[in-house]
Design a protein around this nucleic acid. Structure first.
Length: 917
RNA sequence: GCGGAUGUGGUGAAAUGGUAUACACGAUAGGUUUAGGACCUAUUGCCGUAAGGCGUGGAGGUUCAAGUCCUCUCAUCCGCACCA
């Protein structure tokens, strides 16, 4: 490449400013005293070892443009960065390359921070954090203890998702259909005793708060669906000849008369008690197949008759109880009342097993549903109808029939009428059910914060637990959380998700605060172990690598002082990231997790930018943890992120970048060749920031060309002190045009950046450049670019460009401030000079004036019947003179309207003149 | 099945109900250059010599005027999924 004097040497200039900004702490706000705090946060990355790819760079740059824009608006912007380097994803990579996770973390950290510096973001480099740093995870463990003491962390034996490849349990949110979120292995079901966080206690609040959040709508919808609130009715069915009731949950209590059998999930407690071979076989078989197989086996329903009957409380009918795996234990009560006429699944089941079908809803006459309504005999049937011609269930509205005193009612929208009736009779009650389940927090892995809990067998045998000694504290908690209540023994059996403080908690004590952190020991055998090799201290078949290290787990009971055993599982990596935004404000404090005053000043986060893939993972967990901290009076807000913007995804060849696909694009090569500014702008130009796009390097040359053009226009080709002379040769209206264009550009770009429409912002910059270029080319003055730069037109260009191309604009800005520097220095020195002048990135963002937005002349389009036929230019002052414009226009388009009558004329001021003929 | 999104030139993509394709990429021609690159100029939705016509996945509708609003429909992508 030929290097003339005007050559923009990005490889010299970019590192120069990156170093300068960091050294001067230009982007490190004074957290205690900032007047105008603005917390601009991008979801922190987990440092994959290939390094930062352009997908990461895309999202970070997008967030950075926003931060820089706001900083120039006069806000004290805090844009921290850190690494989410604990957890399965990092450990799996370490496994792959055969390196110890700690060693790999060091390598990744170095590489990632190097890359993050090279992209030129305005990060606060004085306040970084890494989740695997003991100074950080000490407080992650502290947080766990807080949840435990609040009764929100508990152990229970439950059917959990087990990834055979990662050799650990997973939370519901980490199972995608039936595959592990990390390695895509099919997950298995295992009955294990595990630590859970009681996020379900916050289900209602997590749902209701959504309304007040200024978040991307689709994320709110995803959370809403995941929480999955449904309102309905709990109904008790007495089991015939047994002192036992079965509770079912239904959202359609109005169809109760049509319930002709009950169905239990194979995991339902009652099923375990039935001593009947076919039942036992079925239950065992159902247990052994994965959820996905249940679904994919053609959806053919299977089941078995339990031999038991129940009484339908509304009409005292004796109805059979069946067991079928289409009923899930994890939702509702694990038992349903089947209404085959009005539920498709029940219908299919009834058809297959020849069970009675009774219609109790008559479809409204306007309904598309024909099959039921045309059958007179069905409508008139009194009671049980076997195998009628009904071909599918009808789930819509209509009139209730065959239902005793309900017959003739319209199907009520909110079911209040029906539920009130049921409650009065006393065999059921109003109930709300959620899809959300408790957060399974333990992981049988190495690379995470050890769960800071201690199990003491002596205390266990004596029936002691932390709770037995702290009942009072806990009681308070129970009152403050509406949904959280201790159920009776009986309810526990039927409703396993609410098992609280039962014997499983006996013997458990949290590690004392002064003993935190529980350090993750440096062990050689850190790899996940197969179940068979696990040494069993507890009843668990499946434990993490730390369970082979007595020097780690052997400890003293905080209560009675005898030898006790530490928990050897580590916590889920999503716990690490559920509170990091708090820690950023207090990375240096050693006495608390976060400084309350600073947090109060800076949080909630003003703008959180991140990927939509975290809709039900990180974002839900962070909200939950914040609510807990709010309840425990550690923070005074209960939502962590006021605004959330979901950016798009950069894909490559139509697919998400991933190492398995081999389509990961690393930015380093592009940065080396074109510079970070070019790549930043290219990425931002691909499309709207919330849409992402396909990465191809075809357009990158063009963007580099644009930046070089700007540089050429404004850099000092010949060093000169010539001032810009306003020459008489230049007509005044040329300046008026420039002014209009400049103010228009400021307005458009300001609005576009606020809406994350970076692509059109850049387009406007290019247009503006083109106008300036034409102007300076046409008039060939001033003689020197240095003089050009010192005009408001060019300063504005540089300022507007600054958030996108921070390095080049800084260089230009500093040259402007030291115009004479070049006279004394060689070009080389010039490019490496750092000045003490105010950085462009803290200069004021240009403002526009409405009065300049009005143009002198306007083009009016002439249409005939809505079709464009011509146009003409009118002086703005004449726009109001409608009659004159009309006659002018008619003259112009004479040939189109000759011989026709004008029926109507529509004039849109300054835009369109439409003749209807 | 439910929910969300997206369909516009050769490509990435613009368009408060008001000139469809801004801004780029690519392509073609010319200039400049020892050559290549870079740079500059012009052209570039489709059909047509032209006049003109046709064009925003498809079919209707509302309107003086529809990419935009309404109804139906097709395709692709992404969530969730036997949720009672």
């Amino acid at each position: 490449m030929k290097k003339d004097k005007n050559y923009y040497n990005h490889s010299l200039i970019e590192p120069k400013w990156q170093k300068s900004w960091e050294e001067k702490k230009l982007f490190s706000p004074d957290l205690k005293n900032a007047k105008n705090p603005y917390y601009n946060l991008m979801m922190f990355p987990y440092p994959s070892a290939e390094g930062l790819h352009v997908g990461n760079m895309y999202t970070f740059t997008g967030a950075d443009v926003y931060a820089r824009f706001n900083r120039m608006q006069g806000k004290d912007v805090f844009e921290p960065i850190g690494l989410d380097g604990f957890g399965i994803h990092s450990e799996n990579y370490a496994l792959k390359v055969g390196r110890h996770p700690r060693e790999q973390a060091e390598i990744s950290e170095k590489n990632f921070y190097r890359q993050l510096r090279a992209i030129g973001n305005s990060f606060d480099w004085t306040r970084t954090l890494e989740t695997y740093d003991p100074n950080y995870y000490k407080w992650t463990q502290w947080l766990f203890v807080q949840l435990f003491k609040a009764g929100l962390a508990y152990r229970k034996k439950a059917e959990v998702n087990w990834c055979p490849s990662c050799k650990t349990v997973l939370s519901d949110e980490q199972v995608i259909v039936d595959k592990c979120e990390r390695c895509s292995s099919t997950v298995e079901k295992r009955e294990l005793e595990q630590w859970f966080f009681r996020i379900t206690a916050y289900a209602e609040r997590l749902l209701n708060n959504l309304e007040k959040l200024d978040w991307t709508e689709k994320i709110k919808i995803a959370q809403k669906n995941w929480i999955g609130r449904s309102q309905g009715c709990l109904i008790n069915f007495q089991v015939v000849d047994l002192d036992c009731q079965i509770k079912v949950f239904t959202t359609r209590p109005d169809t109760l008369f049509g319930s002709t059998f009950l169905v239990l999930s194979p995991e339902h407690p009652i099923c375990q008690k039935i001593d009947q071979k076919d039942v036992k076989d079925y239950v065992r078989k159902a247990h052994n197949i994965s959820d996905n197989d249940r679904i994919t086996e053609g959806k053919e329903k299977t089941g078995v008759f339990s031999g038991l009957y129940a009484i339908n409380p509304v009409n005292s009918e004796k109805i059979p109880i069946w067991i079928a795996d289409y009923v899930l234990m994890g939702y509702g009560t694990g038992a349903i009342m089947a209404v085959p006429a009005h539920d498709q699944r029940d219908y299919e089941f009834a058809k297959k097993y020849n069970l009675p079908i009774r219609q109790v809803i008559a479809p409204v006459s306007s309904s598309k549903y024909q099959v039921l309504s045309k059958k007179e005999e069905i409508l008139n049937a009194k009671y049980v109808i076997h195998n009628t011609d009904i071909v599918e269930a009808y789930a819509g509205d209509g009139k209730i029939l065959n239902s005793g005193e309900w017959s003739g009612w319209e199907v009520p929208k909110d079911m209040d009428m029906v539920i009130d009736w049921i409650e009065k009779k006393g065999f059921g009650k109003r109930e709300v059910t959620f899809h959300l389940r408790d957060w399974l927090i333990s992981r049988q892995r190495y690379w995470g914060p050890p769960i800071p809990m201690i199990y003491c067998k002596a205390c266990h045998d004596a029936g002691r637990s932390w709770f037995t000694e702290n009942k009072a504290a806990l009681g308070e908690r129970e009152v403050s959380s509406s949904k959280y209540q201790v159920l009776s023994k009986k309810e526990e059996i039927l409703n396993t998700k609410y098992i609280i403080h039962n014997t499983e908690m006996n013997g458990w004590y949290p590690v004392l605060d002064e003993n935190l952190p529980v350090l993750l020991p440096d062990v050689e055998d850190w790899k996940p172990r197969s179940a068979s090799s696990a040494r069993s201290g507890l009843a668990n078949k499946t434990e993490g690598p730390l369970s082979s290290h007595p020097e780690f787990y052997e400890t003293k009971c905080p209560k009675c002082g005898v030898t006790a055993r530490r928990e050897t599982d580590v916590s889920d990596t999503f716990l690490d990231s559920a509170w990091y935004f708090l820690r950023y404000t207090s990375v240096d404090t050693e006495s608390v997790a976060f400084d309350r005053e600073t947090v109060k000043k800076w949080l909630p986060v003003n703008m959180y930018i991140g990927g939509a893939e975290h809709a039900v993972l990180h974002l839900l967990y962070s909200r939950f943890i914040t609510m807990v901290l709010n309840d425990l009076k550690f923070v005074d807000f209960d939502e962590p992120f006021t605004k959330l913007f979901a950016h798009g995804l950069i894909i490559k060849d139509g697919a998400k970048m991933s190492k398995s696909r081999g389509n990961v694009v690393i930015p380093d090569g592009y940065i080396k060749k074109y510079g970070a500014d070019t790549l930043r702008m290219y990425l931002m130009f691909i499309g709207p920031f919330n849409q992402g796009g396909d990465f191809s390097d075809s357009g990158i040359e063009g963007m580099n060309r644009f930046l070089k053009k700007v540089w050429r226009l404004l850099s000092e080709a010949q060093i000169s002190n010539l001032k810009f002379q306003i020459s008489n040769q230049i007509p005044n209206d040329e300046f008026a045009k420039l002014d209009t264009k400049m103010h228009r550009t400021i307005k458009d770009i300001t609005e576009d950046i606020q809406n994350f429409k970076y692509n059109t912002s850049i387009a406007r910059l290019m247009e503006y450049y083109n106008v300036l270029f034409d102007f300076y080319t046409k008039y060939k003055i001033p003689a020197s670019p240095a003089g050009r730069l010192d005009t408001k037109y060019c300063k504005t260009l540089v300022l507007l460009l600054a958030p996108f191309a921070p390095h080049m604009t800084e260089e230009l800005w500093q040259r402007l401030k030291i115009k004479d520097l070049g006279l004394k220095n060689e070009e080389k020195n010039h490019q490496s000079a750092i000045t003490n002048h105010k950085s462009i990135h803290v200069e004021a963002w240009p403002t526009f004036d409405e009065k300049y937005l009005v143009e002198d002349t306007v083009t009016i389009v002439i249409q005939v019947n809505g079709k464009k036929r011509s146009e003409f230019i009118v002086n703005s002052s004449q726009l109001k003179d409608e009659e004159k414009l009309k006659s002018q226009a008619q003259e112009i388009i004479k040939k189109y309207i000759e011989g026709k009558t004008i029926k109507k004329t529509i004039y849109v001021q300054g835009k369109i003149l439409n003749f209807v003929v």
